[in-house]
């Protein structure tokens, strides 16, 4: 991908350290995020993969301080942004960081844009709030941003309402808004899931370009391993609230260690595989994702794992470093498992 930033030389801009976000309800405690740690590096895309309920979105909301409380609460851990723990900040200080330091885009651009304000109005608000521009300056800056995200005839579009734009255009407008204050971190939660493939290709291309231009650290949350392979520099695989595997992208795809990651990779239909005579049937991961209220004892994947051992059912393995930053949470690779 030719990113100029070297992973070893640059300090992480954000460090999530043993984050625990739990939801409290009558049914009990749902440990949606249960001890998650990873870093974001400037100019790099960190892909967070997992299925529904694995905690990938709640992790992002925790960073933004947007976990609905009640029922949710960050109960433990640290989120260090330039060495400052975001969890210690009050709402005013956090607001300053949101938007200017850390911005977020969501899956459904229609429901995250305000339908009664024009696109220009919503983008220029960012400039007025965070940069103190006056109305005129802010609107000019908004037009400029729309141009950067390649919206055709930005002067006209700036006065339009969200419903007048197509899905792809709305997502561009969202990205324009998120990038308007030149944030150091962009959190993108399933940014292309609601879009058609040809439009998805455009948006991914755009995010790539913006990342290189602004050397933003992007946290890309997706269920699509294809998008991860194409975009990410490092990958964090989550399952039932925990990180099960983490590595540089190539390493992860070439030397997949965790049975869950292997299962995920084998279960996606890949264009051309059937034609080329590869696997006529897809590999299934048996069973279903466990409820967070009713997790298996021991390893959380143990009730679906094809390689389950006795230890797995009783003891939860630690995330273990296998060298060169490849971490895995599995008794197959952690000492003390088979004994």
């Amino acid at each position: 991908m030719g990113t100029a930033v070297d992973k070893n030389s640059s300090e992480p801009v954000l460090s999530i350290d043993n984050l625990k976000t739990h939801f409290f309800s009558r049914k009990g405690v749902a440990r949606a995020v249960d001890g998650v740690s990873f870093d974001l590096t400037p100019g790099e895309v960190t892909g967070i993969v997992g299925e529904s309920g694995c905690g990938k979105s709640v992790t992002a909301l925790s960073v933004m301080g947007l976990v609905p409380n009640p029922p949710g609460r960050v109960v433990d851990g640290r989120i260090l942004f330039h060495g400052k723990n975001l969890l210690d900040l009050d709402i005013t200080a956090l607001r300053k960081i949101r938007g200017a330091g850390i911005a977020m885009i969501f899956q459904e651009p229609m429901s995250s844009l305000n339908p009664v304000y024009t696109i220009g109005n919503q983008i220029s608000e960012m400039f007025r709030l965070h940069k103190g521009y006056d109305k005129k300056q802010a609107l000019a800056a908004a037009v400029d941003m729309l141009e950067r995200v390649q919206i055709p005839s930005p002067h006209k579009r700036v006065n339009e309402y969200p419903h007048q734009l197509s899905g792809g255009m709305r997502q561009r407008a969202m990205i324009a808004m998120a990038m308007s204050c030149d944030p150091e971190i962009l959190i993108a939660d399933e940014p292309t899931t609601a879009l058609d493939v040809t439009v998805q290709a455009q948006i991914l291309d755009l995010m790539h370009r913006l990342k290189d231009d602004f050397s933003t650290a992007i946290q890309l949350i997706t269920h699509d391993l294809g998008v991860i392979a194409e975009m990410a520099d490092q990958v964090v695989v989550m399952y039932a609230g925990q990180v099960v595997e983490q590595a540089r992208t190539r390493e992860l795809f070439q030397h997949t260690l965790h049975p869950y990651t292997r299962g995920l990779l084998a279960s996606i239909p890949v264009l051309g595989h059937r034609t080329r005579g590869m696997d006529e049937d897809l590999v299934e991961i048996k069973g279903m994702i466990p409820s967070l209220h009713d997790l298996p004892a021991g390893c959380r994947f143990s009730n679906r794992c094809p390689e389950v051992m006795d230890t797995c059912k009783t003891r939860l393995p630690d995330l273990t470093d296998m060298g060169s930053g490849h971490q895995v949470r599995c008794w197959l690779h952690t000492k003390g498992g088979s004994a």
Partner: peptide, 16 residues
């Protein structure tokens, strides 16, 4: 346009 789950095969896509 379909992203392929193989980082070794990152090819130039036709972007419409």
């Amino acid at each position: 346009a379909i992203p392929v789950p193989d980082p070794a095969r990152r090819t130039r896509r036709i972007i419409l």
